[in-house]
Design a protein around this nucleic acid. Structure first.
Lengths: 228, 228
DNA sequence: CGAGGAGTTGATTCCAATCAATTTCGGTGG
DNA sequence: CCACCGAAATTGATTGGAATCAACTCCTCG
């Protein structure tokens, strides 16, 4: 029934390609001088957006708190990704928090600048629309995954996500990103213990390798098969 | 165009309010002469979109097939709702199927007409953007629900969705929509048996009532509490 | 070198899926 | 109008997967 390969590397989609120099200027990008360290919170669920941000270095997790505080990571953002746009577009408070996973640097775009460009440039609007449509597709696929897949499948899926999004070292095959086991569990929607056990199983089965916190993708084909 | 009525002022969002007569005309809305009967498929996962549709009567479920054919309903569309827009915007094949739950009538909008209006009317673009941002918010909430909630919570959530989206008869408190127990399970992401057992439990606890296939919302407050 | 966080492992529990059987219901044709 | 058929709903028994609880080790960092 599945018509797509679930792990098709998504061509990176940059909102800002094809904008003219003037249009970029009109966004009034401001470099945020201080960087966010690992664990620092960029914004929190419930607070109100004042601007939107473009990540230009590092990794940010977008996460929500569910039943008795259990975390769910809904998205990972890295260089080129826009964050905080959704609440801004809806004019509502943030429905998720954003926290740096690695040291992160951001550009800030004042919200009026963003809205002005949206109004004046139909191509830019179309870009935003396509980005949203893509995110939505991704999210709905995720709903089905969460509802139906086993822990093993969800962890395989999470590892593939990390591999696609951040890539692997071409010599060692180590994932370029280092997340805690808890965070991997929070992506997959399983407990930390289940994440650890499954990662350990994959290691025993030589699908992946483990070097401390680092995970090596040893057999991508098998991993893809595990994710179904 | 006729006014679309619903009991859900909060979530309901009509794309076409605030469009001028000319703009509406430019969409070249075509009434589709034959209606779709209960169970009829409007389009299927994997096929390619040729146009987009506005529901003007009836209910349509948007659903995907997951592990060994198990269905997941990702969205319900009724009067005023647009369907099939996402794949059109992405220029990709449908990632979900659409099936009539009740006898359904549609307007069809040729895709060029839609794209033209998007290009020419920033306000309309903004409407589309907001609709997408809303859908996305909804979908990400759903991811957390699926990942973390119990069967009981998910069924309560599904019943609330039906109550909000389609309303209840103000005398009997019966849900205006009639879905099968399987479909309710497919919304909640649980098996049909679990859906039945939980609905039966809620009935025993006088949170809801059952009259054949019809479900009566007897105690909305309790139901909301169940959904957490 | 101590402390605390991250990772690991084992034992236990329990929720929900699965499997199986039966009843009820709604629509259709004689 | 009623009998019949298939689909939907229901109920029970069983199983199994994953959460929970608990204890412990291993880093890493001040």
């Amino acid at each position: 029934m599945q018509e797509f390969k679930t792990n098709t590397p998504r061509t990176h989609f940059c909102m800002f390609s094809e904008l003219s120099r003037e249009q970029i200027a009109s966004l009034r990008l401001q470099e945020i001088d201080n960087s966010y360290k690992k664990g620092e919170v960029l914004f929190s669920e419930g607070s109100y957006p004042k601007a939107l941000y473009v990540v230009y270095k590092g990794i940010v997790k977008i996460h929500k708190y569910g039943i008795n505080g259990k975390e769910q990571i809904t998205r990972l953002a890295s260089a080129g990704d826009l964050i905080g746009y959704r609440s801004l577009l809806n004019n509502e408070s943030y429905t998720a928090s954003a926290t740096a996973i690695e040291e992160t640097k951001l550009f800030k775009i004042p919200s009026e600048a963003f809205f002005n460009l949206l109004k004046e440039n139909p191509d830019f609007s179309m870009k935003v629309i396509q980005m949203l449509a893509n995110d939505l597709r991704q999210s709905e696929k995720q709903v089905v995954n969460m509802a139906q897949k086993s822990v093993r499948e969800k962890i395989a899926e999470a590892l593939l996500l990390l591999s696609n999004k951040f890539g692997v070292n071409e010599n060692t095959n180590a994932l370029n990103s280092i997340l805690t086991r808890k965070e991997i569990g929070d992506i997959a929607g399983v407990t930390t213990e289940s994440a650890i056990r499954t990662i350990s199983d994959f290691n025993k089965e030589e699908i992946i390798g483990i070097e401390g916190k680092r995970i090596l993708i040893k057999d991508l084909t098998k991993l893809e098969r595990e994710a179904i």
